[in-house]
Computed example of a mutant assay.
Amino acid sequence: MWVQIAIWVITTVIGMLLAPKPPKPASATPGNLDVPVAESGKPIPVLFGTRVIRQANVVWYGDVKTTEIRQSSGSGGKK
């Protein structure tokens, strides 16, 4: 029984070490976000059933802007 557990642990570790690393995602900028847009003259899609609409046309969505996240090199959240 202990031999089987040891083999399982060893193969799991080897599998994790040999697994390919996922690529880093591209940084989000206001130009490549998939959010609803408000454009005059954009055609209105007619859908039947359940579908996902990419960049739907809306009247008002709000102020879309990005804010840089800065990590402080101070106490790291400790009190």
Rank of each mutant, 00 (worst) to 15 (best):
M1P: 07
W2A: 14
W2S: 11
W2T: 10
V3L: 14
V3Y: 12
I5Q: 12
A6P: 00
A6V: 07
I10E: 08
I10V: 14
T11W: 07
T11Y: 08
T11F: 09
T12A: 14
V13K: 05
I14G: 03
I14E: 09
I14W: 10
G15T: 04
G15C: 01
G15N: 07
G15W: 03
M16H: 10
M16A: 14
L17C: 15
L17D: 05
L17E: 08
L17H: 07
L18I: 12
A19C: 05
A19H: 07
A19R: 13
A19I: 02
P20V: 02
P20Y: 00
P20C: 00
P20D: 05
K21Q: 13
K21C: 08
P22F: 00
P22R: 00
K24S: 12
P25L: 01
P25N: 04
A26E: 15
A26F: 02
A26P: 08
S27K: 10
S27Q: 12
S27M: 10
T29G: 11
N32T: 01
N32V: 02
N32Y: 01
N32A: 00
L33M: 15
L33Q: 10
D34A: 11
V35Q: 06
V35S: 06
V35C: 09
P36Q: 13
V37A: 09
S40Q: 15
G41S: 03
G41E: 01
G41C: 01
G41A: 02
K42R: 15
K42F: 05
K42N: 02
P43M: 01
P43H: 04
I44W: 06
I44C: 05
P45C: 03
P45S: 05
P45H: 06
V46A: 11
V46W: 04
V46S: 10
L47A: 14
F48H: 10
R51N: 14
V52H: 06
V52A: 10
V52G: 01
R54A: 14
R54F: 10
Q55E: 09
A56G: 15
N57P: 01
N57M: 01
V58D: 01
V58G: 04
V59I: 12
W60I: 08
W60G: 05
W60D: 12
G62Y: 02
G62T: 03
D63H: 13
V64A: 11
V64N: 05
V64T: 11
K65Q: 14
K65M: 05
T66R: 09
T66F: 02
T66K: 09
T67Q: 14
T67G: 04
E68D: 13
E68F: 03
E68G: 04
I69G: 03
I69L: 15
I69P: 00
R70C: 03
Q71I: 15
Q71T: 09
S72P: 03
S75D: 07
S75M: 05
S75F: 09
G76I: 03
G77Q: 00
G77S: 00
K78I: 06
K78Q: 08
K79W: 09
K79F: 11
K79E: 11
